[in-house]
Design a binder for these strands. Structure first.
Lengths: 342, 342
DNA sequence: TTGTAGGCGTTATCAA
DNA sequence: TTGATAACGCCTACAA
């Protein structure tokens, strides 16, 4: 029931608590023998230090937190793995904190910063439309990683690492155009959706324009709004609609791979074929999209690179080598089996 | 820089810290007016209590932790969502804790129990081969949810909620047999893999036996070992092997949907068709498997039910309505497009 | 190399 | 209804 504390260990060992503390924290200036003896007792009695007490007392830690909205998004999986690896390599402690869809990530961050005495924070994915005042409450360095930024936030020290959503979405839509597609539908988020939905839509518009294709509002299919708007189901519904309305298009650009796959399935169920009847392009470059049948033509975000760079920037900020860096990576056009040349 | 503490708030309000404490904790016996006044100040100065201090001092909390190994597994996504919903509904606090692949979940649990003064713990997925002594260090109720159990652990109070892996895997392999398949390959984990790999393999064996099909060791394809053995890639590799070796089978049972999809893709790339050339069955019933083309024939684990029941059991344990319950749910055979009748 | 004592930010137990 | 004050378990000067 009652769990053992540092005092108990000290008593058992016949030393003072500070000596025990030194032993468990690998402090210098402690006799090897006493240390060994203490460690043995600790092992025997299974003493585990209380983290709350440690965090409370410690002036600083090596804790780095990754805050992530939409944990179930497979896009994040490889990034998380990379973060963990890198953070451990640097001898920091990795804390993964999930943020609920309708929770304010900054609030969570502020709370966690206090609780864990964070050294730095990474915000992963999602949007970011927070006021300056709020962001200023964050007193440790933070980096936005693959966060669709609609605009820079003035007067706040922070960094960001991501691809340029607009540019990349332009890239893939332009690719569709160059293959001869002139009627390209888009499955996109509703107007009120900030961030990636908007940015990727802008890239689409621009690409059409540069290819002298007139924008046809009838070819814009909106995802249902709601928390699962970026789901397969949501793409599926949009796909069904496209087919049933006999949308006048030869290609479809879905703003994420997941949505593309949902749409693909819908088209398949309606008896059409991809890419023969409809070409479909996605965005993200999930591992899954290589294994889907047909594999997706998509924009691959260099997730590993982004993760590594995110931490590099964060550590640079922590070590005061830099104040603020905004790094943009190129996406890679992956040519899969879901788009045909016409 | 320096963040505001309860003392500061007390000073600003001209009251004592205990009064502030009462205000933030909704304690009875505090004047409504003073409370309002304090809350206003708190809002204005953005005071946020330090969780470490709270956890340290508080005798008990309403924290429930979900520990999960293999966070990236899409199988867990809907379960996590359900857990969160239910836990919040009961006015408890939901703590999601990721456990690294080569970390000991019990160690993590013990540490977290101290740090957060947990009320209860749910272990999600993975295997479980811990000694009794170790488990006894857990002093709060815990439930194993969808944890493949090779055997009951004697003399320890704990509960479990899951499907019977052996029975369900029997069910789907038997289904294959009944459709006329006599040569059924299996993609399974290596022998040394505990838990689900083993259990699902046993179901396969039993089903073959009951259908008077002789077991053919050549039709057992092992996943590469390693942390990503349950990945698409891993299934893909096995699938390639099956085709290239011209395995003498009409059907393949993959022990998870993810693996099945990887194998499916491999077969597709080699120019064969599913289910025309090979029938493939999976296990888990992921949402994704309904959207894959072809959709998978699989065993769907009733994840929502399992999640709800897991918490019900946990709360019953917390409230001492029960000591230990072992609940088994039935899986559901989902008939997809990946298996044909021969 | 070790021990003593103060304090991290809270909550809980008193007494007022 | 409020206020002192003692913990919670640990780390860290400082002293020995």
């Amino acid at each position: 029931m009652e769990s053992i504390t540092i005092k108990d260990v000290a008593k058992i060992c016949g030393v003072s608590v500070s000596t025990v503390s030194r032993a468990i924290n690998n402090n210098p200036g402690i006799n090897e023998e006493t240390k060994n003896m203490i460690m043995q007792v600790i092992k025997k009695y299974d003493y585990i230090p209380n983290n709350s007490a440690r965090n409370l007392k410690r002036s600083e830690t090596n804790n780095i937190a990754i805050l992530i909205k939409g944990l179930n998004n497979p896009f994040f999986s490889p990034m998380i793995a990379e973060f963990e690896k890198e953070i451990k390599k640097k001898k920091y402690t990795f804390i993964l904190q999930r943020v609920d869809e309708n929770q304010d990530e900054i609030e969570v961050a502020i709370e966690l910063e206090k609780e864990k005495r964070l050294k730095g924070i990474v915000f992963l994915g999602g949007y970011f439309s927070h006021s300056r005042e709020k962001l200023e409450k964050l007193t440790v360095p933070f980096v936005l990683s693959t966060v669709g930024m609609s605009e820079m936030i003035e007067g706040v020290k922070y960094s960001s690492v991501a691809v340029d959503d607009k540019k990349e979405s332009y890239k893939i839509v332009d690719y569709l155009c160059k293959l001869g597609h002139k009627k390209i539908a888009i499955i996109s988020a509703t107007d009120d959706d900030e961030s990636i939905g908007k940015l990727r839509f802008e890239g689409y518009m621009r690409a059409l324009c540069d290819n002298n294709i007139e924008f046809n509002p009838d070819l814009v299919y909106y995802l249902q709004s709601g928390n699962d708007r970026y789901s397969m189901r949501s793409g599926y519904i949009a796909g069904k609609k496209i087919v049933k309305e006999k949308a006048d298009c030869t290609a479809i650009f879905a703003i994420t791979d997941i949505i593309a796959m949902g749409a693909l399935r819908a088209i398949y169920e309606e008896g059409y074929k991809v890419p023969e009847d409809y070409s479909i392009a996605g965005y993200d470059g999930l591992e899954l999209s290589r294994y889907y049948i047909p594999s997706l033509t998509t924009i691959r975000q260099p997730v590993e690179k982004i993760a590594v760079e995110t931490l590099k920037v964060l550590f640079d900020m922590i070590n005061e080598k830099t104040d603020s860096v905004h790094k943009v990576f190129d996406g890679e056009l992956i040519i899969g089996e879901s788009v045909k040349n016409i």
